[in-house]
Nucleic acid binder design. Structure first.
Lengths: 326, 326
DNA sequence: GCTAGTTATGTTAGCGATAACAGTTTGTTG
DNA sequence: CAACAAACTGTTATCGCTAACATAACTAGC
């Protein structure tokens, strides 16, 4: 910067302004400065910039897992919004553990992020406490909370679970099972939605429920289908808490020659790309995870600009995709 | 840091050393310093640290796409190695464009990364040039090159393509088609492998080839199956350049009541989780993308420690997964 | 032609840490 | 027990940039 300043016959602060606050520098002078910078192959030093008090252009993003497409697509949404604005994501993986989340937060604050994007609202009390005392704004993704002063972007997992159970009831199924794995707060909210819908219809039976804390996957889906049918052979429909499990179950039904949906209906959650293409195609709830990413990032940008967002909580909804499997 | 120093009755540099170079500080003193730091809720400032000359603990990672599971799993491998060592990934998405890659590189160098992880070896001449003059080490992932002084971790895409075509020939197929989308350098290398294998068997026919520059997806796979069968109805096997396309084709065959593999064999590439579970299960090449991520990160760490790695290029190989679809 | 009000540029002093060298203490040896 | 090396701690300067305030150069109005 000093070199550029010397060549252009100005002080370094003017060079700084030519880059960061162009309207404070006369048009012609600015062009001269930029051309000298170009000639010298100047690479700005964001580290020095951040130390001197400018925004670090870092945003911490914490997600539970990097192999779950749902979070990856959310990440893609965040990236697509933040990157054009010059922000950099610092991605942390909590492995579904609030404790790990607390540690990651501690670590990533060392990078002087300008803002935070956290998945869910299930944080440790100490994490909440720290977030409240932070000067950086935080947006919570995928779920919402009543806590005052919280910014959230997501949809109601409970309502999603309820809607799918309701759909199965509407289709005439009466002995509806529920299967879940990776029991994170969002999965449990869907389970609650399912239970409420069945209770409202006076058809809830806990023996048709199978909850497995281990991670979900296609093979786990096949596995859990067998388990549930063993423990509750009279099921006429099964609602899986996500599409991975549901797809695994569909494939297993093909192997076991169980006719879907005639003998057994199968439903999922999330609408992964393959779900529209399986045979039979999978009835599921399409969730706006990419949009959650985009909107969360946009909300954070609003906060970073010091503006007051129109609403603290954005409910992006979901849609029921009725397909052949039910 | 000054506060801690005051309380502990030492100078700031001693505090710095207590954290960063523990063996230079007497055991008791170090403990006292750390306990004061704890009490004060001290959060180290990595930005200042980096400006003062310490490593920034940032590593730039450039991948072509964030919605392609192959790169995401590679990313997961990188993360799993770098995170425990205190490094932070700065992730950039090139959208398969070397020009965009050059721009990202320019931008991310502003963060003073300690090292770089790039996907592939298909960079602009100016990018190569810049990489050579960088003091930071670079590792190239997923492909390798003869360029001297380059560190690469991956496997031979050409050999993978050749091996799959060879497998189909060994199974007795004679009119073997090839379908590809998203024609990045790795895809084209697989295509070359396929061609070579068929030429070696004197069975190559360009009319059985379908190359589509648009992104690949399950629905694109269904689509391209139809297209190829329209232009070359006599195919007895089709090799798809990745599992997304192959799965889409499998689903389409189910819809069109084409018997796989009796009427038509289908093969893919990558071995995505679902590929073992479709009906029929998909013959494919299992690629070590998670391991590529891990090993690339490990190689970079070796370089960051100033050590000479045992080999500049690591070929992690691949394995043919023979399943029902062929 | 002069003042007040703007706009454009410059000066000074850090941001929070570490490198390089300097000084002090401790331990060992003949 | 002096003499010197090794181990520990301190002093000073600096990394590259920007905030805050100071100053200079314009502009408009009377």
């Amino acid at each position: 910067m000093a070199d550029i300043a010397r060549l252009a016959g100005v002080s370094t602060i003017t060079v700084s302004r030519a880059f960061k606050k162009p309207d404070l520098v006369t048009e012609g002078l600015r062009k001269r400065i930029l051309s000298h910078a170009e000639k010298l192959g100047y690479v700005p030093n964001r580290v020095a910039s951040a130390l001197a008090g400018a925004p670090s252009m870092n945003v911490v993003v914490l997600i539970p897992s990097m192999t779950n497409m749902v979070f990856v697509e959310m990440l893609a949404g965040i990236h697509d919004v933040l990157y054009p604005r010059g922000y950099q994501m610092l991605i942390g993986v909590t492995r579904y553990s609030p404790l790990e989340e607390e540690r990651l937060l501690q670590t990533y604050l060392e990078f002087l992020p300008d803002g935070l994007l956290l998945t869910g609202v299930d944080h440790l009390p100490s994490t909440w406490n720290r977030l409240e005392n932070l000067r950086q704004p935080t947006v919570h993704m995928m779920e919402s909370t009543d806590r005052p002063g919280c910014y959230c972007v997501g949809f109601s997992q409970f309502d999603g679970g309820y809607a799918m159970a309701r759909h199965l009831l509407d289709r005439g199924y009466r002995r509806i099972g529920f299967v879940a794995a990776q029991l994170d707060p969002r999965t449990l909210a869907r389970a609650d939605g399912y239970r409420q819908a069945l209770r409202d219809a006076d058809l809830y039976d806990p023996r048709r429920e199978l909850l497995m804390p281990e991670p979900s996957s296609i093979s786990m889906g096949a596995n859990l289908l067998d388990q549930l049918l063993a423990q509750a052979p009279d099921c006429d429909a099964i609602f899986f808490c996500n599409d991975d499990l549901a797809q695994g179950a569909l494939f297993q039904c093909q192997r076991r020659k169980i006719d879907v949906p005639k003998q057994l209906a199968i439903a999922g959650f999330n609408d992964l790309p393959a779900s529209a293409w399986t045979s039979p195609s999978l009835t599921t709830i399409a969730t706006p995870r990419y949009q959650v990413g985009c909107q969360s990032a946009n909300l954070l940008l609003t906060l970073l600009e010091g503006e007051q967002p129109s609403m603290p909580t954005h409910d992006l909804g979901f849609s029921l995709m009725t397909r052949e499997s039910t």
